[in-house]
């Protein structure tokens, strides 16, 4: 182990970097936007409509208007980044050992990218009457 030459050694780069400052602002700015996006989303899906009505046709009618696609894409992106960044902070708080922290952070990064792509593909590519995933798995399991 390296010996520390001074108690006034440079602070840990990870805790004083510009990224942490950006993260701090991002939590607050995305959070304020999410207060409106998430609560309006809940009111639309659970109050002005009932969950039993939010069927495939409901989504089709809603996504005929590009406004809701942009709305949902913004909600997905901000909520996922806000939430996964929160988990990143929790890993820094609770996971001891550089190796484990790096492993967790890498895993969280992979989860973020994967789920963002899944959600984005659905919001952007949804077209009523088509079943791209159904067709994909059909091809996958019926290869001759």
């Amino acid at each position: 182990m390296a010996t520390r030459t001074s108690v006034y050694a440079k602070p840990n780069a990870a805790t004083s970097s510009g990224f942490e400052v950006f993260s701090w602002y991002f939590f607050r700015i995305s959070g304020l936007v999410l207060v409106f996006l998430a609560i309006i989303h809940l009111l639309v899906m659970h109050v002005s409509n009932d969950v039993s009505q939010t069927s495939y046709d409901f989504v089709a009618a809603r996504y005929a208007n590009p406004f809701w696609r942009v709305y949902d894409l913004l909600l997905l992106t901000l909520a996922l980044l806000h939430g996964m960044n929160g988990l990143r902070v929790m890993v820094d708080d609770y996971v001891r050992g550089r190796g484990w922290r790096l492993a967790w952070q890498s895993f969280l990064g992979l989860v973020t990218v994967t789920f963002w792509l899944m959600g984005t593909l659905t919001i952007v590519a949804f077209h009523p009457g088509t079943a791209p995933l159904g067709a994909f798995f059909h091809t996958l399991f019926h290869l001759k």
Partner: peptide, 12 residues
């Protein structure tokens, strides 16, 4: 929720 909306891709 991201997984459940992805099911849209399997049709109505």
């Amino acid at each position: 929720h991201i997984v459940d909306i992805t099911i849209l891709g399997f049709g109505p």
